[in-house]
Design a protein around this nucleic acid. Structure first.
Lengths: 142, 142
DNA sequence: GTCAATGCAAATTGTTTGCAAACGT
DNA sequence: ACGTTTGCAAACAATTTGCATTGAC
């Protein structure tokens, strides 16, 4: 299970008629090794620090591919910056974002998942993906 | 109730030491008269058609103000474009977005609202705002 | 008349694209 | 050797900002 993503990745590349390159591989591995939410620059800085040369252009092009094949997911907050996170062997979850610290906490609620499925179904739709973010503040103890 | 937003608006302006101008007023009125989700250009086109001159700069500056004082809300989808909608005397709701047509359907679920409140509370947080979007596709009848 | 608001155009920022050089097969 | 990928720099698009002019009070 730990290695199967490599085969999946190679299959995805084949399906798109793309070649296996060090940059593509390194970006994929970045997500396997790093849990959390990163923007394009985060990824480039990390890879550069690890002596892997990769440009913005290639990073964005690869991220699109990874999103398309469900290796990671994209989210855009109100600041307009796209952030990406690992989706490989990580279960689905949603996000609580602390508006003071920026800390991101993951949560999952099967009840909510079920209710929203039903809401969509009632209107004649099926859910392809969803975004559920709670912007929160620590409760003060006063 | 229909007019109270004007007083609220004037109070907000006073609180920010800002003047009541035709541009600010017109953008506020735009939201009162138009239900739906609009980006900056939509608003400018509408106002221009109605013989009101307003620039991008002013529109963005005013939208920030309206969001800050809860006259409207901002949402940014994966395309990175900010869309705004009326929040005055319109009840809270979330969004289903058809990925084929772009159509936006509103929904509300008190159960979900309650569950998410509890999730936040359990982690010691209170919800300031939230984003809940279902990206959907029409169910085909095959 | 004073100081803030506006509109314009320039600047900024995140992302995308065209193209010559480098790389995978 | 071939066609693809890369990195760079230029192009783009949404948003923000600086500044001279206009407008609210």
């Amino acid at each position: 299970m730990k290695e199967s993503y490599m085969n999946d990745f190679k299959e995805a590349l084949k399906k798109e008629n793309l070649k296996f390159t060090n940059q593509r591989y390194s970006i994929l591995k970045f997500f396997v090794n790093n849990d959390g939410h990163y923007d394009c620059d985060d990824i480039i800085h990390y890879l550069t620090k690890n002596k892997i040369k990769v440009s913005k252009a290639t990073t964005y092009r690869t991220l699109d591919l990874l999103v398309k094949y469900n290796f990671c997911s994209k989210m855009v907050l109100d600041d307009g910056i796209a952030r990406y996170e690992n989706k490989i062997d990580s279960n689905h979850h949603d996000h609580m974002i602390c508006i003071d610290t920026g800390k991101i906490i993951e949560f999952i609620s099967p009840e909510i998942e079920e209710i929203q499925e039903n809401i969509a179904k009632e209107k004649g739709y099926e859910i392809i993906k969803h975004v559920h973010q709670l912007f929160v503040k620590k409760i003060s103890k006063n």
